[in-house]
Design a protein around this nucleic acid. Sequence first.
DNA 1: ATAAAAAGTTTCCTTTTGGAAACTTTTTAT
DNA 2: ATAAAAAGTTTCCAAAAGGAAACTTTTTAT
Lengths: 208, 208
Amino acid sequence: MTEKQQQDIYPSMTITTDQSEQKIAPIKLGERLKEIRTTLGLTLEEASQKTGLARSTLSKIENEQISPTFQAMQKLTDGLQIDIPQLFAAPKQMNTTGRRDITRNELGKPHPTSTYEHELLATQLTNKKMMPFKSQIRARSFDAYGDWIRHDGEEFLLVLSGEITFFSEYYEPVNLSEGDSVYYDANMGHMLISVSEEDASIIWVTAS
Amino acid sequence: MTEKQQQDIYPSMTITTDQSEQKIAPIKLGERLKEIRTTLGLTLEEASQKTGLARSTLSKIENEQISPTFQAMQKLTDGLQIDIPQLFAAPKQMNTTGRRDITRNELGKPHPTSTYEHELLATQLTNKKMMPFKSQIRARSFDAYGDWIRHDGEEFLLVLSGEITFFSEYYEPVNLSEGDSVYYDANMGHMLISVSEEDASIIWVTAS
DNA sequence: ATAAAAAGTTTCCTTTTGGAAACTTTTTAT
DNA sequence: ATAAAAAGTTTCCAAAAGGAAACTTTTTAT
């Protein structure tokens, strides 16, 4: 692609209004999309499958050869499970007396269930606002025995390793990999399974 | 949380993996745009002047006859001086009883400070009981500028990678490595430094 | 080092967007 | 109530997006 074409697609143009001149800051949507896709570990083909947009189209969007329609962008955000504002977010940069309770790695209070291993963290403190756990979900097993898990309060969950699928009552199942997280109302039915070969390790925190 | 409550979290269950397809409410961009334009008291002609889009084009977008390209949407948001999120603000939450917010790895909302990189997670949901963050602490740097950090509520922190020292007002400093965690009252002065060669990565959750 | 496979890009073509102007509907003035 | 003006919609066409497949580059396997 030529420099000319790029200019044509995202010109830094000025529009004259009754008040003043305003510059349209060229947002590098393509760059951003590529960043997101690669962060999700997807190839163009996989992204194509998830979004329903042709591989070629995705390539052209990423290389700023075309400007996607709103329709296309919805397919993107829907398929990749991201929010539109994220698409537009500027590329991220790389780069009293008190109580205190340390829990060393692997040394939480065990709380086994039939299908997975829970470890309660910070058990020395009582009357906490939050309850943190670390759990191992054995490969290809459910964390529940079939029915939705449901309880008061809110829950935050982050995947430390492995890959899980997060099922919930009102949403599509979604795959979560290392570093991905989800926050949800815990009275909405929810359930996890580990979908990778290895066991999955997660931490989660509840608050009511 | 009590032992009783934990029992409630994992009741005995029977299998019913309901993966019913639930479509996310399509955003009515046209409707939304018309709402915005009329709220601003603009005619199509005036909006056309401000945005540089033809009157006919605006009409067609508002009546959902065409799907605007990203380019066109930029002209819209820039010309009407509105935020992208405003354009996409869903008219109303679906009939869901539950809320859910996925944050992909590295795709939280950046919140840089002078000494370390915060990433807010689950920023789509408001009125949450908890606030989850992921942070990178640069090797050998403080997370604060000398004085204690102090704020309302409680905090839970877990080290994802690297090694940090956790200082707090009423306790001896303590080293935390991967997998270690600490729960503390946040109104007790606290502070972190990264003590290994590599940057440290932590997740932390606050609740007030 | 080479072949095969996978990932990514470009080409070619069809469909759809976006703009100018014609047309229709609504509002304002008399 | 009617004419004129303003606002909004539709038509027509040029320009750009989206998809299938050919093509090129990169990665993996031998």
